[in-house]
Design a protein around this nucleic acid. Sequence first.
DNA 1: GCGGGTTGGGAAAAGGTTTTCTCAGGGGGA
DNA 2: TCCCCCTGAGAAAACCTTTTCCCAACCCGC
Lengths: 349, 349
Amino acid sequence: MSADAEPAPVSAKPPVTLREVAAAAGVSVATASKALNGQGRMTAETRERIRETARLLGFRPNSLAQSLLRKRSFTVGLLTNDTYGRFSLPLMAGVSDALVDKGVSVFLCNVEDDQRLGQLHVEAMLDKRVDGIVATGKRIDRHLPVDLSNLRIPVVYAFTQPDPGAVGLVSDDAGGARLAVEQFLRLGRRRIAHVSGPASFAVVHARAEAYRDVLRENGLATAEPLLGAWSEAWGRDAVARLFGKAGREGWPDAVFCGNDQIARGVIDALRERGIRVPEDVGVIGFDNWEIVAEATRPPLTSIDMNLASLGREAGLALLSLVDGHPAAPGIRKLPCRLVVRQSCGSPPQ
Amino acid sequence: MSADAEPAPVSAKPPVTLREVAAAAGVSVATASKALNGQGRMTAETRERIRETARLLGFRPNSLAQSLLRKRSFTVGLLTNDTYGRFSLPLMAGVSDALVDKGVSVFLCNVEDDQRLGQLHVEAMLDKRVDGIVATGKRIDRHLPVDLSNLRIPVVYAFTQPDPGAVGLVSDDAGGARLAVEQFLRLGRRRIAHVSGPASFAVVHARAEAYRDVLRENGLATAEPLLGAWSEAWGRDAVARLFGKAGREGWPDAVFCGNDQIARGVIDALRERGIRVPEDVGVIGFDNWEIVAEATRPPLTSIDMNLASLGREAGLALLSLVDGHPAAPGIRKLPCRLVVRQSCGSPPQ
DNA sequence: GCGGGTTGGGAAAAGGTTTTCTCAGGGGGA
DNA sequence: TCCCCCTGAGAAAACCTTTTCCCAACCCGC
């Protein structure tokens, strides 16, 4: 029992309470509380003695009791329907990272697309008196299967469509597309194609529009984007369409892809046709999914949506709301980032 | 005030307390509490009246107050160092799913490999009086950067190396390897190669050993497994080694790969050599990472580690520990599952 | 009519902390 | 010397719920 003199908490014993600290220091709990929180008035000596006692005993205030009183639980909920995780996890990690430093913990709530599960999670969070909720989802378009519009706590949407009147953070897809196309232009490419995902996604249109804008601004002809699926197979198909025609002079010298999987399909198909990347055709993807981007041959230049930052910003925005600072509702767009690898080529000499 | 007769909670008003319910029903809080919890004795009529009042007012007990009293917070922590997420997210979703039905919420704690972050999260969880912790990690081998061995709450390890004396759940890698090799044998393959990840991973050895065992049990020659990296590039390299030799008769007719990325590299390299999959060579991967397995040509047969189930089991195991049921420490292995697609071929006619 | 058992319900403590209010004593000014 | 104010610290309420104990009234048998 006493062989271990370290202040290490003896396992399996109940946590030490403020009352015990107060008793050990010979003061009342009120004084002890004030001493530890830097409140109230007392001699510096008393305060120090109490602090020392608390330290020695390994006292840590019971967060539950604090929350009950302060009406702040220092806890938020993170709702997601993306088990698949390519987008969710960096986002979630970002939220968690931003908040842990402020002493705020995050409840993980995976609701899939299940109404019942969503209800269950929201009720559990409310019962546990979370201070706010970050809602995130698979893709900017799909809605979560729960209604968060009439809660008594603030809600921030990240990477998903916000309720009207709510605060939402998303990546600046148009800006990301600009980065890609402008990079091609800078490298001397002039016949730039765009291969993207299904037309049912709003981001597909946002990116396509930016693509067209940049080309127009530079006085270049804009080809109609090829819309299909978010898959490698579609990337390969698209290459067949773009490079199938006989006349080599009509071929693009660059392809901007709607995601990295499409880009991979494009690169594989080009290689199979004997078309060199990046010498003959440059390729840029979207998402910067490292595991894909680094496995393509050559490694894929891609647009990174900075999801971890997005998550951090969402966490901080929520915290600010919780603290009572009002925030303008609406969508805030966070910039993307171009990650250059080898598939886009080097500047012409 | 009364224009809205719905039980919908009026937004931004503080939650209704038991005291208010009791007042509205004309009883004491004690009676109200007992009525709602099915405790104590009272007329059925009284009980029903209180319940109805509570329902009408939209009363939900304050979980914080309950926790304070019961010394159970119905909250657990989920520690992970895998932001990358291929393995983590299904696991985490499994834990969350298993627990939400029991009213238990999960704190998401991303600690990367950062000692400070780990410390911070563990302290936050302890302060918030979590009932237990699920620790999970990138891979079965790497340890989390925190010491959980002397906590006063139960800890369950999932998919990562448990502390000695603790409870751990991992996938049965040897069993999974057996599934793969036996599938090949069933399909008539006889010269089965194994290409896997770095020798520094324990699972690499577990799977390799099972591979050798199955071959030996069937009286077949066992080639030395090729160990390298968890990458496509290594898969391609391995093909060069296996199929580089002149004599076609020495070539394998099946390759069992340590993960799906290696398998993808193998399949790509075989195709580039004009070797047909699955006609000439069957391929089976590991992890059943759908996005990879479905993108290979042909789609990849793979071993699924059932990570969501693993997560669920871990959650339930932790709950059982929290409830005071003792559990035998040590590692429990959960079976893998063979997911057949096209890369392994069909039975010979 | 009386005592014992039962029934329906309430008072109060407990859980751990924060905060407001109160109070005793000491010091300084008049 | 008296009064006032300030200083240091404690008592108690509050947060919300659960649970134990208690009590009054009623019913029953005798």
